[in-house]
Amino acid sequence: MTERRRDGVLREAEMGPVVPSAERLARGPVVIVECVENIPCNPCVAACPKGAIAIRGDINDTPVVDFETCDGCRVCISACPGLAIFAVDATGDPALVSIPYEFRPLPETGEIVTTLDREGAESGEGKVVRVLSAKALDRTPIVTIEVPKNLAMRVRHFRRKPDRGGTS
């Protein structure tokens, strides 16, 4: 049994196929689909306008991203019922991480937030650069934050600072 089944934290060892190469990451934005279990689910496939996500066998297979076709457009993020899709743009430093965020109140652009990793541990600060909450996202807004490039593959959530009156 993997440690993940025991504590719910995805570790690098299991992330092989999920993560694009360093070269690809440096070339442009891309999505990271952190969906590693065989569960019956497929909306991400249809959500991608480029056809970059495939589920090869039956509906229980894990999605595979064609990193050459994916341009990190983020349309799939709000389509994932597991909120397991993130987008990373590591072409510069700071890098940009886009996160599905179903909490209220939403952060504001320019706000400094505390960034959290997959275990919920604080990993530093990030600046909110975009908040998408269009109707088409069906109540799963996407928040993009600037984080140090070396944390781009670690930051997966954030907490609003208490003095902003937010809750999470």
């Binding site: 993940r4 089944r5 504590d7 719910g8 934290v9 995805l10 952190e34 969906c35 590693v36 279990e37 569960i39 019922p81 597991g82 909120l83 397991a84 959290l116 990793d117 997959r118 275990e119 919920g120 541990a121 997966r156 959530h157 907490r159 999470s168």
Partner: peptide, 12 residues
């Protein structure tokens, strides 16, 4: 499912 666990884990 792991994805459900991951959602609450990353919130601490």
């Amino acid at each position: 499912y792991h994805v459900h666990a991951a959602k609450i884990r990353r919130m601490g």
